[in-house]
Amino acid sequence: MKLRKVSAIVILIVAVVLVATAVGSVHIPLMEVLGILTSKMPGLSAFVHRDWSKAREVIVLNVRLPRVLLALVVGGGLSVSGVLFQGSLRNPLADPFIIGVSAGASLGAATGLLFFIPQGLVGIGALPLFAFVGAMLATWTVSRLGKQRGRLEPTSLILAGVAVSAVLTAIVSLLMVLRIQNLQDVYIWLMGSLSGRGWQHLAVATPYVAIGVVLALWLAKDLNVYLLGEEAAHSLGIDVQRLQSLVLIIGSLVAAACVSVSGVIGFVGLMVPHALRLIVGAEHRRLILHSIWVGAVFLLVTDTLARTALSPTELPVGIITACVGGPFFIFLMKRGSGYYGR
């Protein structure tokens, strides 16, 4: 990407972050947000004139900023994970949850919320761990089942993912029917939300997403070749089996980390990479780089809408991602140039 493009993107992200931090049930003027943020930067704090209340500082630094940053991380992470799954399964309908990550995370979270957290066995802070373990167990099971003659086979993987997800989702429903207390917590978690997330959630998800992005870029060239098909990729020097396993592991780790802190936020991981592919093409390095910032900004904007549209009531962000993303996606599809895999 050219320097001018990169600077434009960075300016856009900073602007969206500032606006998103300013708006909410308590409106904080942009200049004040800027003041609060710069007052925390080493070397710059001396230049800031403090004339805001402590309460507003707490809102900006402890409530809104971590949530805003988490939206960026989760949005970027889900999009990159979507690129990896669509690429490695060569399927435009693949999303980060196609091989059971969301169903596994849901069962993990539901188990935690229904059995462990009410009993005080663990704190609510352990919830991401439950979701993460659930997600990884489900992915592991699906990838074992998706092997045919010792090779990972995209179609069997997808079918195994559907079957395992169906069973796990049914178990979650069963648990919800049998244990009514904490039902609302489970329900809200299942719909996906960034509400009430703080710095500790950011600390859980960020390392996985960061490492995932670096590895995804590292594998970008191989993924390009892999799009030609397995035999062609082999003849261009790619160890197809190794690539598939690596990509599934990386994609699942990133998706699981995102889901564990935000619940199941649909549509971002499916739509952002797919839409971008129609705009910037299938070349993976470009696709991954654009997916990171577009996914990040998309989720931040939709999450901001989710908490301000019907303020003080908060909508689950998944409702907004689908309402905004769906029509846009249909528009791109109907425009029709270069449709994936035709």
Binding site: N224, L228, G229, A232, H234, R277, Y340
Partner: peptide
């Protein structure tokens, strides 16, 4: 050493030049 043109190929939105350049990736 060896190039292969398989029976079945997949076609993605690469430009022709990008696709041909994939042949140079080794």
């Amino acid at each position: 050493e060896i190039a292969m043109v398989p029976q079945h190929s997949h076609y993605f939105p690469f430009t022709v030049e990008e696709m041909v350049l994939l042949g140079r990736t080794p």
